[in-house]
Amino acid sequence: MSVVNEIIDGCNRVRIVGALSIWEAAATWSDLNSLLSAPGPVEIDLTAVESCDGAGVQILCQLHKLLAQRPEQGHVTGISNGLSQAMRLAGLNADGLPAGQGEA
């Protein structure tokens, strides 16, 4: 797993690449936390997440919770199929909420 970011037009574009599991959980959260603590808007791209376990799903829930607190500053731009399947299996929607909640 790696968290890569670049700042384009003042927006911090963060991309998570590879597996998102218990083995990378601490490092991933640490990276994300520091990126999200920085001022300015953030866009998070999850389309390159290859696989995800329970710890990874939990990080995404926490990420969404954090982004929900500052909606004007950050959002998730895309999600990979593997991640999407893991979220469904865990009973969660793409926004990291229990399936059925927060949906129209």
Binding site: A25, A26, N33, A55, Q58, K65, L89, G91, P98, A99
Partner: peptide, 30 residues
Amino acid sequence: TSLGHCRTIAHLDRLPAPEAFNPESCYLSW
């Protein structure tokens, strides 16, 4: 899911505030 049809309802109410969050602890329940 291999035993039959499942409807899974996740609970996030144990998820702590971001500053208290330990990514290696499990807070989810179902």
